[in-house]
Write a protein that binds this DNA or RNA. Structure first.
Lengths: 244, 244
DNA sequence: TCGATTTCGTGAACGGCTTCACATGGGCGT
DNA sequence: ACGCCCATGTGAAGCCGTTCACGAAATCGA
């Protein structure tokens, strides 16, 4: 299962239930693009509650998340009609529904493999716990680092990877190892039962179709910015007066 | 200028030059989706040269980058026809052309603001220099960290931000500060002349239309994975036998 | 020289996503 | 109780991106 998979293997649900079924299960399917924005809405909503807001309009939420307001409405309508016309959305209700849709009601546990600078940063990042994601284990191959405590958790040997995943019921693996160890680490995580991988190593991981891989690549992001800067500078020298 | 801007302001070039012009300037425009893949190709090509490969087929490159081979051909054809039918692509030539397209021929300098764990990780990341991106300055607000050397570069006070940007001809700002300082840092970077921002702080930055912002958000990635896991588990309990 | 083989380049079809525009319908003031 | 106002929910249109399928072109061997 790749990042952009279009769910073609999913049993295509009938557009409508055969009759006036009282069971609302089997909603059509939430588009991938919407899923990617739900976390943004969630964060914006959490910020809003701190300011005491109790209802929010699609326009406000759109500004806070940096998207179009029609998009907000369409996204939220995918989860059901939780808004009130003429008023807006109930903030706490919306937080609950989005959290449920994202599967954050039962917290997920992650293992971070590779506790270098990046692993440290991830382990110490406070933004996980309040959002339904729990760090269950830190693993590293360097004996010098084992036993060290990072963010309240001890660093364990990567030899214990399989044990840790079982003990802590880990379902998500984060790869923060050097490039050379990334694929092998990935294979071990998958063999141990992990089905979701977040990869920070600058390499393309090869996995089975049933594994979900997402990739965060710093130099790719910078190169995309570089492209846009080049475009911009190439556009500056106006050529209208060359013709005469 | 947002990430997904569709270049509507760009003068739409005529599909063909009026006649057999020798000047190939004004290609139609490279799609954003293609730009996002060019860095992947570039990395795969660099790996290939190390193995001694001199030509590469679209199929090989596709496997290395984890995409479809038709996509590779379509992407590369956007930059011009650099392939040879029946043979493949010349590796070194392709590296040159992609680097040129991405604007990496004249190296870009970045400033990293916020030298915590994440800033350390970024500063120490070896993947930048060989890819046309140079770290020009490290800045932090904490007096205790100023003067420290990270990755061969001294940490300077954030008070010197404007000076550093001028001296080092920095065009890209990387925000690795706490959330609270992100927007203010962004504003200062923009005021100092930076037009591209890579934001690691979990917040939506508000900028003018002429500033290009990209965002890397760790918890968002994890929440997307969480959603897919929930989907998967909801699909597992087969319901065919409930009906009798 | 000629045909077989390989791989690029690309038109066309398809599907997904975004945006617009407006009907729908709930609240609030009088 | 009634009508005005406002924000949601959603068809429709258009755009962008992906994939298929095949023609074009280049090499190689006989």
């Amino acid at each position: 299962m790749t990042v952009d998979e279009n769910g073609s293997r999913v049993v295509s649900a009938a557009p409508f239930p055969p009759d006036g079924e009282p069971v609302p299960r089997e909603r059509p399917r939430v588009p991938e693009a919407t899923v990617a924005r739900l976390p943004l809405y969630l964060r914006a909503l959490n910020t809003l509650t701190e300011t005491g807001a109790v209802v929010v309009s699609s326009e406000e939420l759109a500004v806070a998340a940096g998207v179009n307001s029609a998009q907000v409405r369409k996204d939220l309508s995918q989860l059901g009609s939780y808004g009130i016309r003429g008023v807006g959305y109930d903030v706490t209700h919306l937080i609950r529904e989005i959290s449920r849709e994202l599967g954050l009601t039962r917290p997920r546990s992650v293992a971070i493999v590779g506790i270098g600078n990046l692993g440290h940063a991830l382990a110490g990042y406070g933004g996980f716990a309040p959002r339904g994601v729990r760090i269950g284990a830190l693993l590293d191959a360097d004996p010098a680092r084992i036993g060290e405590t990072v963010g309240g958790l001890p660093v364990r040997s990567v030899d214990e990877l399989e044990d840790a995943i079982r003990e802590e019921q880990i379902t998500i693996g984060v790869i923060a190892t050097p490039v050379g160890a990334a694929q092998a680490t990935c294979d071990r995580l998958v063999a141990a039962g992990v089905l979701s991988i977040l990869n920070f190593a600058p390499t393309t991981l090869v996995v089975g179709d049933d594994v979900d891989v997402r990739k965060v690549d710093l130099s790719v992001e910078l190169q995309i910015l570089s492209f846009h800067e080049r475009q911009r500078s190439a556009r500056l020298p106006v050529r209208t007066e060359v013709t005469w």
